[in-house]
Computed example of a mutant assay.
Amino acid sequence: MKIGIIGATGHVGHFLTEEALRRGHEVVGIVRHVPETAEPNLHFLNKDLFNLTTEDVQDFDALISAYNAPANEEPLHLEAMKHLVEILAGTNVRLLVVGGAGSLYVDNKLEQRLFETDNFPDDFKPTAANMSKGLDYLRNVENIRWTYLSPSKDFLVNGARTGHYKVGQEQLLISKYGKSEISMADYAIAVLDEIETPQHQQQRYTVCMV
C-alpha cells in the first residue's frame, strides 16, 4: 500500500514509519523539515499539515496523522482534524489518527474521562481536552473513512516491541500486571494491523500490553 504519515520523524511517527517499511509498504513522510538522514526507501513531502491539499493525499491508500500541536496552541488539534476531513472528503483514502489516552473513560458507565480525573497532570490537560474535541468532531463525520487509535495511559518510547497487544473500545485498559501501558513499537504494529486488516472503521479503539 501507499501510506502517508504526517509527523513521520516524531516519536510515534518514527515507529509507524519503521513498521510500515518493515512490511514492505511505500511510505511518504509528510514533514515540515526534511531530515538530512532518513530510513532507506522513505520518501518525503515537505509540507505543513495545514497546507496539505486533496491533490497531495488522494493517491494514498491510508493517511496516518501523528500530528501534535505545539505547547499553548492546543486548539490546533481540532483545527487539524477539520482540515484533514476537508481534504479527504470524497476520496477513498483511510484516515488513521494517533489519538490520546486522555479521552478514554475510566468508569463502566462511560461518564468520566481520564483527563477529568483528579490525578491527571495539569500540564497535559489542554492537549488531552483538545484532542478529545477532535475525536468528538470526527465521530460526527460521514464523508471520510476514519479510525482513531488511543494508546494506553503510559505511552512508552523505549518499551519493547513484543508484537502482542489487547484491544478495547472506549475504556482505559489495564494489563495483567496492573498497568495501563503500551510501547510505541507495539502501538505501531496495531496501526499497521488495522490498515492491512480493517476491524475498526468509523470507530475509536484502544490498545494495551497484554
Rank of each mutant, 00 (worst) to 15 (best):
K125Y: 07
E74S: 07
N46M: 09
D107I: 12
W146D: 03
R113H: 02
K109F: 12
N92A: 15
Q112V: 15
E116T: 04
Q112D: 05
D122H: 05
L88K: 02
P126D: 03
A80I: 04
R32Q: 11
V31R: 07
N72E: 13
D122C: 01
E36W: 08
L114H: 02
D123M: 13
V98F: 07
N68L: 14
L95P: 03
D59F: 14
A69Y: 01
V34M: 08
I144Y: 00
E142L: 09
V141F: 00
E55H: 10
E79W: 06
L42S: 10
M131G: 08
H43V: 11
F120S: 10
F50M: 03
H77L: 06
T127M: 15
N51G: 07
N108A: 06
K109A: 15
V97G: 11
T127F: 14
P75E: 00
E74N: 04
E111L: 11
A89S: 15
H83L: 10
R113W: 03
N46D: 14
T37A: 14
E79A: 14
G90T: 10
D48Y: 08
Q58N: 10
H83P: 10
D107Q: 11
K133L: 15
R94G: 05
I87E: 01
N140Q: 13
N140G: 06
R113Q: 08
V93N: 01
Y137W: 08
E36K: 14
A80K: 03
N108H: 09
V97S: 11
